[in-house]
Computed example of a mutant assay.
Amino acid sequence: MLFSLRMLLLGLQFLLAGLAGLLLGLCRPFNPDNSRLCARLYALPALCVLRLKLKAEVRSLYGQDRPCVIVANHQSNYDLYVLGRVVPPRTVSIGKKSLKWIPFFGQLYWLAGNVLIDRGNTRQAKQAMLQTTETLQRRATSIWVFPEGTRNLGKGLLPFKKGAFQMAIAAGVPIIPVCVSNYAGRLKLNSWSSGRVLIRSLPAIPTLGLTLDDLPQLMQRCQQLMSECIEQLDRQVAGA
């Protein structure tokens, strides 16, 4: 009963947040801070509906005085609510081109200045990557990326794709890993309290002076740091 009620309320809230975000995007199209505001529109009411206890330690995420590439583990569609709570100012993301067909959400996603790419079209994908480099260097805007490229369903990090790290090296900006405890498949949506999730951002990893020859080592270092952090967060949740 509680599960059905929650799903109904989340569906309604998704539509209302999408409409509000679309109006915001129309009032100030492509403003890079639209993403943060829209993320809050989705996240804050949804976390209340879910009664999901969320603790965030993200000082490094907000302590930057320059653009960066933010990389986070991607577990499920609920990431919209979980990670939407911590999106910093002037941050856009990279998403699949198919997102634009989602009513309200797709249109506001585009108007918020996010980058839509067609992963099946190599030429357009490369063009989008060039656009993101310009965004980082000239628009003083950070970019949020899920380097796994797809949802891992809470079963551990999948192999990272190169795009986020290539962008960071090309623009000479730091990488900030954001780690979320594994919650996918563990939420108790039919209970009064759905569960507990921990989020932690790691210290910035500099890329200035690196070349594409350093790419494999950079990816390996980032994945190892994130994997260790997620394991630590999981232990904290289990011991609570």
Rank of each mutant, 00 (worst) to 15 (best):
129 M>V: 06
188 K>V: 02
128 A>Q: 12
87 V>S: 00
213 D>C: 06
131 Q>E: 15
2 L>D: 03
62 Y>P: 10
3 F>W: 14
1 M>R: 06
167 M>K: 14
35 S>C: 15
177 P>C: 09
209 G>M: 04
106 G>K: 06
237 V>E: 01
147 P>Y: 12
63 G>Y: 11
188 K>C: 10
105 F>Y: 15
220 Q>H: 13
157 L>T: 13
71 V>N: 04
187 L>C: 11
148 E>N: 09
139 R>K: 12
90 R>Q: 13
29 P>N: 07
87 V>R: 11
100 K>T: 04
34 N>S: 08
67 P>D: 10
114 N>T: 09
174 P>Y: 13
206 P>R: 02
1 M>P: 05
88 P>T: 11
200 R>M: 00
113 G>R: 04
39 A>Y: 03
30 F>C: 07
157 L>I: 14
216 P>E: 05
149 G>I: 07
99 L>T: 06
169 I>S: 12
162 K>G: 06
191 S>C: 14
137 Q>C: 14
72 A>N: 02
164 A>W: 10
61 L>T: 08
175 I>C: 12
45 P>C: 05
219 M>S: 03
172 G>M: 13
183 Y>C: 12
165 F>W: 07
89 P>M: 12
143 I>S: 02
45 P>N: 04
77 N>I: 05
107 Q>A: 12
104 F>N: 00
218 L>G: 02
38 C>W: 01
237 V>Q: 04
121 N>P: 12
132 T>D: 05
50 L>M: 14
232 Q>P: 00
167 M>L: 15
228 E>H: 12
169 I>G: 11
159 P>T: 11
165 F>E: 02
205 I>M: 15
222 C>D: 01
98 S>M: 11
201 S>E: 02
231 E>Y: 05
6 R>Q: 12
137 Q>N: 10
105 F>R: 03
34 N>D: 01
231 E>T: 13
31 N>D: 15
70 I>Y: 10
21 G>A: 03
205 I>F: 05
134 E>G: 09
36 R>N: 09
234 D>L: 05
70 I>Q: 03
193 S>G: 03
124 Q>V: 08
172 G>L: 12
197 V>I: 13
17 A>L: 11
105 F>S: 00
60 S>H: 15
192 W>V: 15
169 I>N: 11
236 Q>V: 03
107 Q>C: 07
118 D>T: 05
71 V>G: 02
72 A>C: 14
169 I>P: 09
152 N>V: 09
185 G>I: 14
189 L>Q: 10
175 I>T: 10
208 L>N: 04
11 G>L: 06
187 L>Y: 11
228 E>T: 08
1 M>Q: 08
32 P>L: 05
150 T>C: 09
102 I>Y: 00
182 N>D: 14
200 R>H: 04
202 L>H: 05
14 F>K: 04
141 T>F: 05
50 L>A: 01
162 K>P: 07
100 K>M: 08
31 N>K: 12
26 L>S: 06
81 Y>A: 15
38 C>T: 07
